[in-house]
Design a protein around this nucleic acid. Structure first.
Lengths: 245, 245
DNA sequence: CGAGTCCTTGAAAGGTCTCAAGTCACGTGG
DNA sequence: CCACGTGACTTGAGACCTTTCAAGGACTCG
């Protein structure tokens, strides 16, 4: 029956704690018990909402913190010396991002909000220290990075071998799975990113992505209404993607 | 003046210990002091030489150990449901591989020797336990994974944006840098992988890779003699790769 | 409501792939 | 040690897919 009435906690609503976060099954907190979560809580700072376009971190700046997305969505991207931009990932609530800055001590990519977004911020040094006492947390960090590597490897396979149809189909199916894992509809969702961003991510041009969407709609596989996507023929999409969502 | 005369150590030559390994500046042991290294030593088992084509681990099998390459070279590759193979990386002495199996508990890719190769094997559970007491080791593991992620992201950029010339030039320059870091010539080296493997890795066909090599040689940028490569005009190669080695 | 951006659609161009054939290197066995 | 066979590599010509260039239409936000 603790309603956060102590002076220290008065400004922190219970929903602002890991133990009450509806994402803790996706985030770092997975498999931590209550007392462990409260330790994690102490090193987490909750950011205020960011608008579309705002940067959570900027390529080249010192690596200090990692982020756990709470609401909204972001893209990560690197800008090469020649100035062209490569999107390296899209992230949703529950995702932990920024761990790739550890080895160089600087942020290797920029993180930008695709819509109104809130994120929890964790100083990496504190997280690392805490991981000494919490084996499950330590393991979770390693798992996150390990999964990131596998995701990137899947993207390599996509970019190295697949044509435009296969790329877009795989992209939609992976999004679908991620929305499903977050309790949203897997067959109907809104794309938070632009066609340009999809194209960039998939190594295609905007025109090609647009044509593929049109074609898929003509074939009755999906319904497209601007950013709204409805998957009509899941099996057909799966076949297009060679069942490798 | 310990010459390893105790019974337990008699079969272990001093060169078989991390503290005497000429790769410890590249490997996990970087920045560990002698006593720390000896702790690491205890959980490392040295494998006997593998022949070209032999597997260090197989996609799908249980994830138990990670590997540190001692001599030779390997490729990692994933085989998709449809059976086509995607090479995800080439690795050389001092590289630590296999950490991407943590999150799923199974090996997400196969590791195959490209030539006669020896590797140290470390059970991950023991390594993780040891990392509790050795902050520098813990950090090194994270750094390795963080760097892996960045490398994959660079590959994404390569595959998404670059044409065949840029891909091959970048590939050669990255190899050159890695050989240099290992004390070998940066301008003259032997490719341990086949044209087919290069093509697969770069998302091209064998024919295209062959044509690019031929063209680069005609332009006087490199000399090719089967697997022997000599970089003649480094600046030209850098320009081809847009200075993004 | 207008300006600007995003998205779509079309036609032509270009780069890589596919298919095919020939050459070369290497290991095996005679 | 040489001959041979096999696999790896190279080279050429045509096909195909995606890009490029161009323009029109739709959505969004001040």
């Amino acid at each position: 029956m603790n309603h956060n009435i102590s002076l220290q906690n008065v400004s922190i609503s219970s929903s602002m704690q890991c133990c009450n976060c509806n994402l803790n099954s996706l985030c770092m907190a997975v498999s931590l018990d209550l007392s462990e979560m409260s330790k994690l809580d102490r090193i987490i700072s909750r950011g205020k909402p960011m608008r579309k376009g705002q940067l959570l971190s900027t390529q080249g700046e010192n690596f200090i913190s990692v982020f756990a997305l709470k609401t909204g969505s972001v893209k990560t991207y690197t800008t090469s010396a020649e100035g062209d931009e490569q999107i390296t990932g899209f992230y949703f609530p529950g995702d932990l991002i920024g761990l790739n800055g550890i080895h160089s001590g600087t942020c290797p990519d920029s993180i930008q909000a695709l819509e109104t977004t809130t994120a929890c911020k964790i100083e990496f040094e504190q997280l690392d220290q805490l991981s000494v006492d919490l084996p499950k947390l330590r393991r979770q960090i390693l798992k996150t990075m390990s999964k990131d590597i596998c995701n990137e490897q899947n993207m390599l396979q996509l970019l190295a071998n697949k044509n435009s149809d296969e790329r877009v189909a795989t992209f939609l199916l992976r999004l679908s799975n991620r929305f499903k894992a977050r309790g949203f509809s897997e067959s109907r969702f809104r794309l938070p990113m632009s066609r340009n961003e999809i194209a960039n991510y998939l190594g295609l041009t905007v025109e090609t992505v647009s044509r593929v969407f049109t074609r898929m709609q003509k074939n009755g596989f999906i319904l497209v209404n601007n950013k709204e996507i409805q998957i009509v023929e899941l099996k057909a999409l799966l076949k297009l993607a060679n069942n490798t969502a």
